[in-house]
Amino acid sequence: MLNSILDSLQYEFVRNALLAGSCIAIVAAIVGYFLIARGLTFAGHALPNIGFAGAAGAVLIGVSPVYGLFAFTIGAGVIIGLLGKEVRERDIAIGIIMTSALGLGLMFLSLYSGYAERVYSVLFGTILGISSTDVQTMMITCLLTIGSIVLLYRPLLFSSFDPMVAQARGVPIRGLAIIFLILVAMAVSISIQIVGALLVFTMLVGPAATAIRIAQRPLWAILIAIGLGLSYMWIGILLSIANGLWPASFYIATISFVVYLPVRILSPYWIRNRGRHESQPVVGQESDSVQTTVEHVHIH
């Protein structure tokens, strides 16, 4: 199997898949960390489904599904950002938007008389069908997304963990939320082309959720999430090529679950032990009560 994997690296489509997958893994890990910190994991699940409707609509009018993907996910991201911080009402609204978009997607498909292969590829991804042009586009989009998050890192981190204090100090909470969700929409749109709408949630949340349980400080958690995401992506792609039986998405999702499960089970023990030796204040938590702390978050 090792020889088969090494031999496959000589093919351009394999190198393209690994390059594009690496871009996606890095962006998804960074964005995923803030999704969890801000309690927006449901939005991370909804945006890919909303993007499917956009792709179907784009095919119906005769343009590339990528345009519809970006238009619908970014539009939905702006709407979700305007819904405010009330979690219960926001999640209800997100659910309504998502189901409405899925209904639109099905209607667009029923109206389309041609072969909808391009739309279905949005659902499952075409990781081994990525061209060099696609890789270049993804790399540019990834660099823009990462650069934006780096510029917004301090206020984004501050508003994620202590929005009331951040707002009192003049951080534009609503505007920052909208910008962040636009970045999430961009990450989702490029990720869908690799792993598909059905499994993009795995790359957004899996590595970050595991990393948050391992590392206490945000920067370390993000770096660990990036490392995990890259590992999942590379192993999944190479196993898919070597085995030839199952798609890369299956391996990526399975590896993510297999790694997360023992960390999820064991993390309460080391978090409790760590809490006995450290007196840092808890400032954030994952949706299922995973606590993470932030040191020295200042807005300059």
Rank of each mutant, 00 (worst) to 15 (best):
A17I: 14
L18C: 09
L19M: 15
L19I: 15
A20G: 15
A20M: 14
G21N: 13
C23K: 02
C23L: 11
C23Q: 08
I24S: 11
A25G: 10
A25N: 05
A25W: 05
I26N: 02
I26P: 03
V27K: 01
V27S: 04
A28M: 03
A28H: 02
A28I: 05
A29K: 00
A29E: 00
I30A: 06
V31A: 01
V31L: 12
G32Q: 02
G32F: 00
G32S: 09
F34L: 10
L35N: 09
L35G: 04
I36K: 00
I36N: 00
A37C: 12
A37K: 02
A37S: 14
G39L: 05
T41E: 04
F42H: 11
F42V: 13
G44I: 05
H45Y: 08
L47M: 15
L47T: 07
L47H: 06
L47V: 07
P48N: 13
P48K: 12
N49I: 06
I50T: 03
I50Y: 04
I50A: 11
G51K: 05
F52C: 01
F52A: 12
F52T: 01
F52V: 11
A53P: 11
A53K: 09
A53S: 15
A53L: 14
A53C: 15
G54H: 11
G54C: 11
A55P: 06
A56F: 10
A56E: 09
A56Y: 07
G57V: 07
G57A: 14
A58P: 08
A58K: 00
V59D: 03
V59R: 01
V59H: 02
L60F: 14
L60Q: 08
L60T: 06
V63N: 07
S64A: 04
Y67C: 01
Y67M: 10
Y67D: 04
G68C: 12
L69T: 10
F70A: 01
F70L: 13
F70P: 01
A71D: 08
F72G: 06
F72V: 14
T73A: 14
T73C: 15
I74L: 14
G75K: 00
G75V: 03
G77C: 12
G77S: 14
V78C: 07
I79R: 07
I80Q: 02
I80V: 15
I80F: 04
G81S: 12
G81Y: 11
